[in-house]
Design a protein around this nucleic acid. Structure first.
Lengths: 300, 300
DNA sequence: CTCCCCCATAGGCAGATCCTATCGGCCAGT
DNA sequence: ACTGGCCGATAGGATCTGCCTATGGGGGAG
């Protein structure tokens, strides 16, 4: 059974007649002419198969079944009004669950600085955090499983919007008693990398210039990388936020700043089709305001 | 806030898109073209002020607020369907409260014969009985306070329908040892009447012909009338059903049949505008079938 | 690089809705 | 008994909404 032909406006007309017990006054209240309202009520009665009103001379009576229909119609109209009111009430920006993904070499070190100010700026936001590599983040964005992603690779997907957040410098991570040359010499096997899939691996390789290592020796994460350096396996580059969070290891690992410009651009990705575009832009701007101070706070 | 522009059909479209996650398939399911459905959904979103769907390339996503709107829309549509189904389901004839009025000289003696068969013929009917004089019954019908009325006066009101039920003869009620003449002699003061307002008073007066009494001696009801006859005050006419129900009083009151044609026509009145006209006609026919047998059963 | 998928847009048509004007029935005041 | 007023129904014309087919345009896959 379809709802074709059943109109909420006609139900309003019905209720108006029931209240006024008078077609003319009901029409005035509804803002239409009396014939228009009469015709619509008659049409609705035909559709329902119920004679709701008995047009008695001089007065309008309600039939027993009409009473029941009117009661249900009143509920329906009230709920419709509630729906309209609910839909139209202004909602806090980014309200509700907000799926935020980040790459593993960034999220654990950046998000702690962001979450509290974000909650203050968007009180109704309920962040749901996840950590994945860039490819999975992009797929999550496209499928709707994520709302925004923090990563570093320039994504050429035209359906995604890219908002710059900040530039994160790389620090040279090495044993204190062993200062490697930078940029590295040809086939510098002492440079260690993350395993395949991490965008940081590619960024470090790019930073190495022509003397990029083969990358045969790799770690599954930054913590492992730091411990490998501590054990004298070699050296590597560390993003500034991770270096600040993980810190040096007395007598085993220290960090040395490199020349300006060596690092990576952190961006916020979102779907271009997300209707909350303006709010997302404000979120990106908030991140831009927040990200540099912690980067300076690490003392590099 | 008005419901103008909010259409249940559009809400159905919205739900179809939410289920199918695909405008084209939703349109097919709704039996309209894809552009038609797209336009209506877009219009509805504008009306609500909520972007329910995010048209992402290759897929359709639902926004957080859209989820809430969809949930309410689903409730609304379900209730609308329930209303349609409820309205369209066949209802037992004359179902619900049924206000039946009767004049005092008829109701208590006729209705006991009618009620059980009426309940069998119209099982869903819930009779609500009342007793009043003709003028009040007619007013009750016109105001909608009554559904049908049983009375005897020919009512000329063009808004009421009159269905004959049966002819109720009058019996001469008198002491057994004192058989009055009929028709009465001029100014026969031994003829006693009911008080003003009872149609039976006028009918008896009419039956008396030119020798009608002044009616100075009157009773408030048929029981009182019978007791007045029993006490030797005079005699009177008694409707057959009342005579059967009240019965003679041994040695004090007896009944004597009169020539055929002396009596009153009992009719059922209803509003001509009552939409249950056919069912009311069947009710009148049922009364016609039921009324004569009890009239004969009184043994007169 | 091209074809396909999918939603949006454009233009025209048909039905629904509303309006004003009028009718017909009932009622009340003269 | 007559007549003016009230009230809902009907008639006819204007307008608007909703739907259709055809097409556009962006994105994705082979």
């Amino acid at each position: 059974m379809s709802l074709a032909g059943l109109s909420l406006r006609d139900l309003e007309y019905l209720l108006a007649v029931a209240e006024a017990r008078h077609f003319g006054r009901a029409a005035t209240r509804c803002g239409v002419s009396q014939p228009a309202l009469s015709a619509q009520v008659r049409k609705l009665e035909a559709l329902l198969g119920v004679t709701v009103f008995e047009r008695a001379p001089g007065r309008v009576l309600v039939t027993p079944k009409g009473e029941a229909v009117l009661a249900r119609a009143a509920r329906l109209v009230a709920e419709a009004r509630a729906l309209l009111q609910f839909a139209r009430q202004e909602e806090a920006p980014l309200a509700g669950p907000f799926r935020l993904g980040a790459i593993p070499t960034l999220g654990p070190y950046l998000l702690p600085h962001l979450l509290r100010p974000m909650r203050e700026a968007f009180p109704a936001m309920r962040p749901v955090l996840s950590e994945a590599q860039t490819a999975q983040l992009v797929e999550g964005l496209r499928s709707g499983a994520l709302d925004v992603a923090l990563c570093c690779t320039d994504v050429e997907d035209p359906t995604l919007t890219t908002s710059p957040v900040f530039f994160e410098p790389f620090l040279l991570m090495h044993p204190p008693d062993e200062m490697p040359a930078w940029p590295p010499q040809a086939d510098a096997e002492e440079i260690m990398l993350l395993q395949e899939g991490h965008c940081l691996r590619d960024q470090v390789l790019a930073a190495c210039g022509p003397a990029a290592p083969q990358g045969l020796r790799h770690a599954t994460g930054l913590e492992m990388l730091r411990h490998m350096v501590a054990s004298g396996e070699g050296c590597s580059l560390m993003p500034a936020l991770a270096a600040a969070a993980l810190g040096p290891i007395e007598g085993l690992v220290t960090y040395t700043p490199l020349e300006a410009g060596i690092g990576r651009e952190v961006v916020m990705l979102a779907r271009g089709s997300d209707p909350r575009g303006p709010a997302l832009a404000r979120l990106a701007q908030l991140m831009r305001q927040l990200a540099p101070p912690p980067a300076r706070a690490i003392g590099v």
